[in-house]
């Protein structure tokens, strides 16, 4: 169980927004993580280095925060590995079919006032909430 943390949520969200504006202002690209990472497979050679460095930046940013402010939360333990594998596969395939994830459709798409992204966001939010309801309250996995 986690508690409501409105201030850190708003500040963290604003930083994500700033990153999205920066990537568009500088590189002319949408900060959609599934698109950036997934594009490493299909795009041409010259298009890959900025994608790798954006991904590396995610690791440096989160890792750096962990070094400066360690243990802001407790790591989950004992979660079934098979569920993680299934989750990863579904997220990988689903974001490619639907053309985006929480960042590309959710943050950037809604900020562009795209109906297409709004529909995608509402769909994945509902699907995720229903899944959690079934897994947690139906099968009793997790807290």
């Amino acid at each position: 169980m986690t508690e409501f943390t409105p201030v850190s949520a708003l500040i963290g969200g604003a930083l994500i927004g700033l990153a999205a504006v920066a990537l568009m202002a500088l590189n002319g690209r949408i900060a959609g993580v599934s698109g950036i990472a997934g594009g490493l497979l299909s795009n041409t050679e010259g298009d890959r280095s900025w994608r790798w460095l954006f991904v590396l930046g995610l690791l440096i940013g989160a890792g750096g925060h962990e070094l400066l402010r360690p243990e802001t939360f407790e790591l989950r333990e004992g979660f079934p590995v098979m569920l993680l594998i299934a989750a990863g596969l579904l997220v990988g395939i689903g974001t490619r079919i639907g053309g985006g994830c929480t960042s590309g459709h959710g943050v950037c798409g809604i900020s562009r006032l795209s109906t297409r992204s709004l529909v995608a966001t509402i769909t994945f939010m509902i699907a995720a909430a229903v899944t959690v309801a079934v897994v947690r309250h139906g099968f009793g996995v997790g807290p």
Partner: peptide, 12 residues
């Protein structure tokens, strides 16, 4: 696609 992604997000 969004629904499949949502199920994966909700699972993990």
């Amino acid at each position: 696609g969004a629904a499949v992604f949502g199920i994966g997000w909700g699972l993990g």
